[in-house]
């Protein structure tokens, strides 16, 4: 029986907009098992990114709690949470967010640097192998501004996976890519998470990508359906 990798328990989150209170997440219960692929769809502004941020611990819920590997993260301080996050999960953003001043290889190594500290030759070899897996073995020394959007997203995926996280949170990873490139990136993400046994929580507008998931969920009216 698979254990729960990440879970949201009765999570609620609202934002103040002027005088009114916008309830984005009303009562979200979600649990994702190790190695499971879950997709979340929903209309724009329904709170998908907020849910991912809450799951990642970079945003606190108003009520309810998030647990990683069965332990609540609610009482962890900001720095303790950050340190834990580095080894537990990887995030893939729609806008890639590569560091423009360093090459592809060093961008991939950033997750290992932040999570683990010193980088040795074994880490470099591992990062090169990861770039090889995402089809960019020959682009190690290329700077981000010389890569296409699809290539940048593949570097971002390699970066997220290098620390062998238990969960990947992907926030519309193909949103900025054309259909063909988006499909390739999605194939890659799904394949690598499958190989590594990493749980994948995918937020997407793309129904074709959503149907690939083990479980297909929809976020609407602040709740998961």
């Amino acid at each position: 029986m698979s254990e729960v990798a990440i879970a949201a328990n009765a999570v609620a989150k609202s934002y103040k907009t002027g005088e009114s209170n916008l309830e984005v997440l009303k009562h979200v219960d979600l649990s994702v098992n190790t190695g499971e692929f879950v997709s979340i769809q929903g209309e724009s502004g329904c709170g998908k990114t907020t849910l991912l941020n809450v799951l990642a611990g970079i945003e606190s819920p108003d009520s309810g709690y998030v647990s990683w590997r069965g332990s609540s993260i609610a009482k962890l301080g900001r720095n303790a949470l950050a340190l834990l996050r580095g080894g537990f999960l990887g995030i893939v953003f729609q806008s890639y967010y590569l560091v423009p001043e360093i090459d592809s290889l060093q961008n991939v190594l950033m997750s290992r640097r932040i999570a683990g500290g010193r980088i040795g030759s074994a880490d470099i070899e591992e990062a090169k192998a990861m770039l090889e897996k995402v089809g960019l073995g020959d682009r190690c020394k290329q700077m981000p501004n010389t890569l296409s959007g699809g290539e940048r997203q593949r570097v971002a995926i390699a970066r997220a996976l290098l620390t062998n996280p238990q969960v990947i949170l992907a926030d519309e990873p193909t949103g900025n890519l054309d259909e063909t490139t988006g499909n390739r990136v999605m194939d890659l993400l799904q394949q690598l998470c499958g190989e590594l046994g990493t749980a994948l929580v995918l937020v997407t507008h793309n129904a074709e990508h959503a149907v690939r998931a083990d479980r297909r969920l929809t976020l609407s009216q602040g709740s998961i359906h």
Binding site: I58, N79, A82, L83, R85, G86, Y97, A115
Partner: peptide
């Protein structure tokens, strides 16, 4: 924000 999401502390 990216560094923080990857586990960087505020310090």
């Amino acid at each position: 924000g990216l560094f923080a999401s990857m586990g960087a502390t505020s310090r």
